[in-house]
Structures are given as structure tokens and as C-alpha cells.
Design a protein around this nucleic acid. Sequence first.
DNA 1: GTCGTTAATGAACACTGTGTTCACTTGTGG
DNA 2: CCACAAGTGAACACAGTGTTCATTAACGAC
Lengths: 202, 202
Amino acid sequence: MGRKVRERMETVDRRIRKTKRILSEALIALILEKGYENVTVREILDRANVGRSTFYSHYESKDQLLLAGPQNLGVRIFGDADPGTGPDAKGAPGRGEAPDFLPLFLHAADNLPLAKAMLGRKSGDVFNSHLQSHLTRAIRDRFKSRFGKAKQDKFWLRYFSGAAAGLVMGFLISWLEDDMPIPPEDMARVCGRAVAGLFKAA
Amino acid sequence: MGRKVRERMETVDRRIRKTKRILSEALIALILEKGYENVTVREILDRANVGRSTFYSHYESKDQLLLAGPQNLGVRIFGDADPGTGPDAKGAPGRGEAPDFLPLFLHAADNLPLAKAMLGRKSGDVFNSHLQSHLTRAIRDRFKSRFGKAKQDKFWLRYFSGAAAGLVMGFLISWLEDDMPIPPEDMARVCGRAVAGLFKAA
DNA sequence: GTCGTTAATGAACACTGTGTTCACTTGTGG
DNA sequence: CCACAAGTGAACACAGTGTTCATTAACGAC
């Protein structure tokens, strides 16, 4: 039972890390060139100079490569840029207030090509829907204390959360597509105020 | 030049109308069953009992069938349910105000299965992006008189329009997915106020 | 450095879906 | 009634997917 668990959390074979990195880079580049839907596995392999069987030994599909990239893709935006995942527990900070969107916009700003590949007009809707439902959940948790328990209240809470998430996505995506001419701080502030205003009107 | 243009707007071969109608119905049913992305042309043909060559003599692809259905699909929501397509011309009614979203919600309510197939979680993003950019344009035209001509102003106008469109989509889709427990009139009113409030805070 | 292990290679394969063609049959409108 | 337009279904070429396997190369532990 006291067996060595091999603290190999970081000691992954160099070859694997290299392969995964190259595959991610190839995918990002190809998405920006021709749009996610039009990118084939074949093209990724050619661009990355990686064998077909190698690809399938690491990922099950194109979607997985996009979503499960070790640090390159989804994780960076989902990870610490996560706006208020915590539930609206009693006394939790920020309860009933809009989440802080600054980490999200900062992360996007730090990874423009990546962010555009995942969220922009050339991207597929794979990551889009992930982020959207993630935002919806986060926002709903923040504001649920403002709504009652009647059926109607539950509906409205859900609709306002969905609308707020769509609002944030709209801000984020159009800003990305313009290559971020406005500082992320301004975007986050405006975005937070807009969400707060939306719920105030509820 | 004064040639007869054959007022055959309605006199289309019965066979054609029947074929197109059956194909649309089959597609809608299949989308609701297994999601747009997972529906193949083959399945549509089997369900509709239509020959492969017949399909391709009418449509170029699955997407076209979804978007260009004569009256069955896109047109119904894009047509008269169109919220304020008109530009924000001087003196035009509704200038600087939020569009009236009632027709949109009413149309959706009148065609729940269709609307869910085109916009719901099972739908692809084909029609979604169409509607989103359509809404963005319509809203931008309504509010552009409130913004100045500096570069910054143009950016903000675009971002707020994108955010407002996302907001409307969020309301609409979550309401659709709940099978519309709230009357469309209420949704439209709340939606309009939310958009107006968003731009007021700008 | 040696050596057992692990990853990468690339070609072959079966499979599914797409879009086209064509000779043929059936339904329609005039 | 009949000329013509529409539908049929099978065959085809093609492109993409995901798997398998024998072979080669790189790794890292000692």
C-alpha cells in the first residue's frame, strides 16, 4: 500500500511533450488560416510532420486536441481565468455581484492567436459552447440569491444568466476580432457593469 | 424587354413542392433526434424516401437545406419576424431605441420544433451565426446615432451591438429549451428593456 | 555507455459519407 | 394524349476517419 506512486507529474517523456506541442501549434495555425470546420486531421499531421497513428495514440479526435491540450488550449482560459466558479454560498465574497471578468480578458489578451482560434469567427462552436455554458453556470451561481424559489423565478434566473453569458461572449468575440484595440481592463470593467445592470433591471 | 416573366411564383411543379417539404420535415425531425452535426444526407434521404440524385438537384448540401427551405426554415424567422432591419435613418421610427423583439419571439412560439431544430442545443451553428450577425447589424443600425465618429466610438458601438445580440440569443435559446413556459410577450418586453438598458449604460 | 522500455513511423486497411453521372421510369401540365 | 420535367437507384470516384502492425528511433534509468 505504501507503494511508490512515481511522482512523475512532470516527468513525461520529452517525445510526448514535443508531439503534443507541435500538434497544438499546427491546429491553431490551420484554424486561423481556413476555419476550424475545414481543418482535417490529415492536414494537421502534414503540417506537424507527425504520423497518423501517433495522433490517434494521444487524442481521439480533432475536438479533443482543441479542448484537452495540456496547457496550450482550453485549460488556459478555463483554468485560473475562471470568473467566479464558486457557488453563491452564504457569506462568500462577491455574492450577488457580477463576477470579475478581468482574468478572462487578460488571458485572452495574452494569447491572441489562441483565443481567436478558439473563439473567433474562424473557430468552430466546440469551445464556444463550452465557454458559454461555463459562463452561464458561473453567473447563475453568483446571482441565484437574488431570485425566489417559485417556478417563475427559477425560469427568469436561468434566462437572465443565459442572456448575461451571451452578452459577455458578444463583447469578448467582437473585441478579439478587432485585435483588441481597447485595453482588457476597460473591457472587463464595462462588461462587469453591463452584467450587473442587466440583473439590476431584473 | 417587356417579356412575360411568367407570374409563376406559386405554380411550381407539385412534385418539387412535395419533395422539398418532405426533405425539410425529415431534417427537422432528425435534428431534434440526434443533433444537426450527426445527421447525414443518407439518413435524410432514407427518412424522406427520396433519391440521392433528387436531393442534389435541389440543394447543394445539408446546410442549404436548412437555410434555404422555401418557407419551412430560415425564411420564417428571417422574414417578417425581422426586428428592425431598416437603417437608423434620420427621423426613422424607433431611431435610437431598441428594436421590437415581439415578432421574433412570436414566430419562434408558432414554430417550436422548427425553432428548436434551428437554434436549440441540438442545432448546429449554421443558423445560429446567421441570426446572431443579423441581430448585431439590426441593433447597430438602431443605435449608431448615439455614438460619435471617433475610432473609439466605432469600436464601442460594435462591441455593444455584439453584446446585445448575444444577450438576445441567450434569452431566446434558454427560453426555447424550456419549451417556452413564459409568454412571448413577456420575453419580448424584458428583452427590449434589457437591450435598452445596456445601451443606456454605454 | 548499455539496454530494456516506450514512442514515433508509415503504409495498408476497412469503413463511412459526399457529390456526380446516367439510363430509366413516372407524374404533370398543357 | 403526349412531350417534357422530375424522380429513381445503382454505380462511381473521391476524401476523410480511425485502426493495426511490423519496424525504427529516442529516451531515461542504471
